[in-house]
Amino acid sequence: MVSMDIDKEMGAVAGVLSREQKQKGMLIHAFQEIQKECNYLPEETLETLGRELDVPMSVVYSTASFYKHFYFKPRGKKIVKVCTGTACHVRGASEVLKALEGEFGVKEGETTPDLSMTLETVGCVGCCGLAPVATINEDVIGEIDMKRVAEIIKSVKEDLS
């Protein structure tokens, strides 16, 4: 699966690290690889990882949960993030969120059962001028009105066929 020879990967640096630090390094590296492959960190894979590296599950999960970008549940193909920063909030972000939640039957933070989409919220994404704003994967969509909401919905569903 994942190459785990941390001493080789880290070269001379490995020598000055404590066992805990090395373990953490190895874990994070492994998480990244696993997530690249599975799109999230499946429980069984983490259990195998813990066993292999002789790290307790509590430490595995503690380390992973420290980072926002590791996920413990499957993620959708499209990640839709509705900005709820101040500007977007004022200009109706919650309507946008509600509409999407209603359409897909998921709450913020959840993924549709068919794994087509994960709905999330995010603090200001830095395009306040375009508020309300959402992102689909890397793309930013601004000035969202109900028409744009329909477009977002369409783009998520399109991908399914």
Binding site: P56, M57, S58, V59, Y61, S62, F66
Partner: peptide, 9 residues
């Protein structure tokens, strides 16, 4: 026993 840990931050 390693049961409890800090989760999240």
């Amino acid at each position: 026993t390693n049961i409890l840990e800090f989760m999240g931050r």
